[in-house]
Design a protein around this nucleic acid. Structure first.
Length: 424
RNA sequence: GGAGAGAUGGCAGAGUGGCCGAAUGCGGCAGCUUGCUAAGCUGUUGAGUCGUUUUACGGCUCCGAGGGUUCAAAUCCCUCUCUCUCCGCCA
């Protein structure tokens, strides 16, 4: 959400943001129009209410006979006020609904573009492996080794479901635990979060309205299964005013993630790339309302994740996500894409986003500045640390060997009870 | 799931229809004091929003949330949420 006052003063900038992000730009003008009407009406309502309050106070001090005389006039204004109030309330909710759709302007160095094909590579790290044998995809490899069973996953839960067995299940657990330890070493606080959350959390983090189709809803209880731990992690302090001393708040959580993948019919149907349920370690940072701090923290968070990919000996690249591929609330986003031999391409494994106060304004999450003064909305950021099974694609495919076995990167050995190879 | 109690400012806690955005205490901040052991004294101290002549002033809203009664609600009524206590169930 944006500050309404700011939107009024920077209408052109917001319109431009909508155009660049390929979102509906007409909401900006609808918002401004309704907002103007609403403020005019609000002024009327408040003036009438003030007058009514004044005369009501006088009324209390009058003699009973005098009071009776004045009551009828009072009742008439009251009726008028109620009518105006009703209009004002309706208009207000319309303005609020429109405000929820306004786009956060992207940072200056976000490349313009229509979709992910126009993201701009900013770094490329690690050697793409050259194989002198027939390379297998992770699902073929997994089937041969008897550690991935997609057919039966589908039998149990429908398309885009899977089973990991034996060493694949262990490798997943090892990678997730390694990722958590990696972040603990970097000073993050580990949190265990709810993954079935209230609507406010989904709205507060920017997933609703608009993303309802992507979420599994527990409608009977009006709860939603989260698609990422970003949702609960960012929402923890909603409605609170934090002390300056506790910022920045750096937290990490491992959680299951659920995504309906509506509208992706026929896309990435093979293997474990796009599935309904997966595990993810997510980092979330809340800090002061300072653009420079935010920008710096964004880089650091990106480095935490790229360091992890290097430890796992995986080749990857970083892309500066273009405006058309940016979410409504994101100021800037860097994706890490990891090399996946079966795709003969880099595939997205991480997404690092910076929001300024877009989420925190929706969440009403503030802090009291160091020098006192009015509470300010925090800045929020998040990034993937690791997501599985997607990372298993890269691990299995990049580290496969001629004899059909897969080597396990050294950093994971301790998490695999010393095991160094799968199969073979 | 059943029964009961409760929800007021940073915290504690008073307030049962108009003089209440709200006593008092603690904490915070500012100043003074520094011969009675970091204490004493004085002052100050919520948020949101709208307007204007915009470092200021004024209006309106906010006493868990929503609705109702009334000229007037923290206060009366209804619904919901949450917390606590007891019982039941349970990994």
């Amino acid at each position: 959400m944006l500050d309404s006052k700011w939107v009024r003063e920077h209408a052109a900038e917001v319109r431009d943001a909508a155009v660049r992000k390929r979102l509906d730009a007409t909401v900006v003008d609808s918002f401004l129009e309704k907002d103007q009407l609403h403020r005019e009406l609000l002024l009327q309502v408040e003036n009438l209410r003030a007058a009514l309050k004044d005369s009501s106070k006088v009324l209390g001090k009058l003699s009973p006979e005098q009071r009776e005389k004045n009551l009828s006039a009072q009742r008439a204004s009251k009726t008028k006020l109620k009518d105006l109030e009703q209009q004002e309330q309706l208009l207000r909710s319309e303005v609020q609904a429109l405000a929820m759709l306004l786009p956060m302007p992207p940072a200056a160095d976000v490349p313009d573009g229509k979709d992910d094909s126009q993201n701009v590579e900013v770094a490329r790290v690690g050697e793409i492996p050259q194989f002198d044998f027939q390379v297998l995809s992770h699902d073929d490899l997994g089937e041969k080794l008897g550690i991935i069973d997609i057919k039966r996953g589908v039998k149990l839960a429908g398309s885009r479901n899977y089973l990991l067995l034996g060493d694949a299940a262990r490798l997943e657990r090892a990678a997730l635990q390694f990722a958590l330890d990696h972040m603990l070493q970097r000073g993050f606080e580990m949190v265990s979060v709810p993954t079935l959350v209230k609507r406010e959390c989904m709205e507060g983090t920017g997933y609703f309205p608009g993303g309802e189709e992507q979420a599994y809803l527990a409608e009977r209880d009006d709860l939603a299964l989260v698609g990422t731990a970003e949702v609960p992690l960012t929402s923890i302090h909603s409605g609170e005013t934090l002390d300056f001393e506790c910022l920045p708040l750096r937290r990490v959580a491992l959680s299951p993630c659920y995504r309906r993948e509506a509208g992706t019919y026929g896309k990435d149907t093979k293997g474990l790339y796009r599935v309904h349920q997966f595990w993810k370690v997510e980092q979330v940072v809340l800090g002061p309302a300072c653009k420079d701090w935010s920008l710096e923290e964004h880089k650091i968070m990106l480095k935490h994740s790229s360091d992890l990919m290097e430890a796992l000996e995986l080749p990857y690249r970083v892309v500066n996500v273009c405006t058309g591929d940016l979410g409504q609330g994101q100021v800037q986003k860097f994706d890490i894409e990891t090399w996946m031999p079966s795709r003969n391409a880099y595939g997205e494994t991480h997404s690092a986003s910076r929001f300024h106060d877009f989420q925190t304004r929706r969440l009403n999450l503030r802090y009291r500045p160091k020098d006192g003064g009015k509470p300010q909305f925090c800045h929020s950021l998040n990034n993937t640390v690791i997501a599985s099974p997607r990372v298993l694609i890269a691990l299995l495919e990049n580290h496969q060997q001629a004899d059909g076995s897969v080597r396990i990167p050294q950093v994971l050995w301790p998490y695999m009870g010393g095991q160094q190879v799968i199969g073979g």
